[in-house]
C-alpha cells in the first residue's frame, strides 16, 4: 500500500495542472487561516478608550472606513482600493473564509444526503429505487436559482438560508452518481459472498460497496466545491445571500453594480472594484477544478 501511495503521489506531482491546482488551493487555505494577520479585524475609525483601534465584534462584517460610498483607487493603505467605504482587500481576504465555509458545509451535507439516498436506491433496487429516483427527478426538474429564491423568500435571506437552499437542491447529482456505481458493484462476487455469509445489509453497504464506489463521488464533490461558491456569489449578487457588508465575494460584486461600466469616457476607471473579488473567485474555482481533475486521474482506473 505504501509503494502504491508513493507511486500515486509521484504521478500527481508530475502533472503541472495538478501542481497548479494544489498550490492555488494551499494559497487560499493559508489566506483563510491567516486572515486575522493579513487584515486585522479592527476599525481604525473608532478608537477605544485606550486609543487603540476598536476590535470588531464580528470580523466577517467589513468595517466602514469612510463615509463616501464612491470607489477609492488602490493606495498604500488600501492596496486593492475601497468601495462603499469598505476595504476591498479586507473583503477578499475574509471572503476566502466565507467561500471555504460555504463550499465545505454545502458539499459535505449535500454529498452526505446524496450518498444515503443513492446507496439505498441502488442497493435495494425495485420499488425503493423507483420511488427515490422519481423524487430525485422532481428535485432536478426545478431550476436551481428559482428554487433558491423561493426558499429564501420562505426562510428569509442570509448566508445560512442560502446554504440550506443549496443543500436541499444540491444532492441529486451525487445520488445519481453513487446509485449508478452501486448498481455496477453490487453484482460483484465479493458482495454476493458477503450476502452468502449473512452479513447485515448496512455493513455490506458501508464496508463492501461504498469504499469501492465513493471515489467518483469525491472527485465530483471536489469539483462542485468550486462551482458552489460561484452559485453562492450569484445569489449574493442578487441580494438573497449574505447580509449587507458581509465579507463575501458575491456581496462585494454587488457593491460594484453601479461602477461596472466605469466612468464616462473611462471604461476601466473602477477596474479594481470588479477585478479583485472576481479574480479571487475565478482562481478559487480553478483551484478546485484542477484538484478534482488530478484526483480523478489518480482514482479512475480507466485513465491509468
Amino acid at each position: 500500500m505504501n509503494t502504491e501511495l508513493k507511486r500515486t503521489l509521484r504521478k500527481l506531482f508530475k502533472n503541472p495542472s495538478a501542481i497548479l491546482g494544489f498550490s492555488l488551493l494551499t494559497f487560499f487555505i493559508i489566506v483563510a487561516i491567516f486572515a486575522p494577520l493579513i487584515s486585522p479585524p479592527i476599525n481604525p475609525m473608532f478608537p477605544d478608550e485606550n486609543g487603540n483601534p476598536m476590535k470588531l465584534d464580528n470580523p466577517y462584517i467589513m468595517p466602514i472606513l469612510s463615509w463616501s460610498s464612491d470607489p477609492v483607487p488602490p493606495s498604500k493603505d488600501h492596496p486593492f482600493g475601497m468601495i462603499a467605504g469598505r476595504d476591498i482587500l479586507y473583503g477578499v481576504v475574509w471572503g476566502t473564509r466565507t467561500a471555504f465555509k460555504i463550499g465545505l458545509i454545502v458539499v459535505t451535507a449535500s454529498t452526505f444526503f446524496g450518498i444515503i439516498i443513492g446507496s439505498i436506491a441502488g442497493y435495494f433496487g425495485g420499488w425503493v429505487d423507483e420511488v427515490l429516483m422519481r423524487i430525485t427527478d422532481v428535485f432536478l426538474s426545478i431550476p436551481f436559482l428559482l428554487a433558491a429564491m423561493v426558499l429564501t423568500t420562505i426562510l428569509g435571506s442570509g448566508l445560512d438560508k442560502v446554504m440550506i437552499a443549496m443543500i436541499i437542491f444540491g444532492w441529486m447529482a451525487t445520488a445519481r452518481l453513487i446509485r449508478a456505481n452501486i448498481l455496477q458493484v453490487k453484482e460483484e462476487q465479493f458482495v454476493l459472498a458477503a450476502k452468502a455469509l449473512g452479513i447485515k445489509n448496512y455493513i455490506i453497504i458501508l464496508r463492501h460497496i461504498l469504499p469501492n464506489t465513493i471515489f467518483p463521488v469525491l472527485v465530483q464533490a471536489t469539483m462542485r466545491l468550486g462551482s458552489l461558491v460561484i452559485t453562492a456569489a450569484a445569489l449574493s449578487f442578487l441580494g438573497l445571500g449574505a447580509p449587507i457588508g458581509y465579507a463575501d465575494w458575491g456581496s462585494m460584486l454587488n457593491y460594484t453594480r453601479n461602477y461596472i461600466l466605469g466612468a464616462s469616457g473611462q471604461a476601466l476607471a473602477y477596474w479594481y472594484t470588479v477585478f479583485y473579488p472576481g479574480i479571487a473567485m475565478v482562481l478559487f474555482v480553478l483551484a478546485w477544478n484542477l484538484v478534482g481533475d488530478a484526483l480523478r486521474d489518480v482514482f479512475d482506473p480507466k485513465l491509468k
Binding site: E188, Q189, F190, A193, A194, R207, H208, P211, N212
Partner: peptide, 8 residues
C-alpha cells in the same frame, strides 16, 4: 479477482 473486496 472479483470475489475478494479489494479494499479490506
Amino acid at each position: 479477482y472479483s470475489s475478494l473486496n479489494p479494499r479490506i
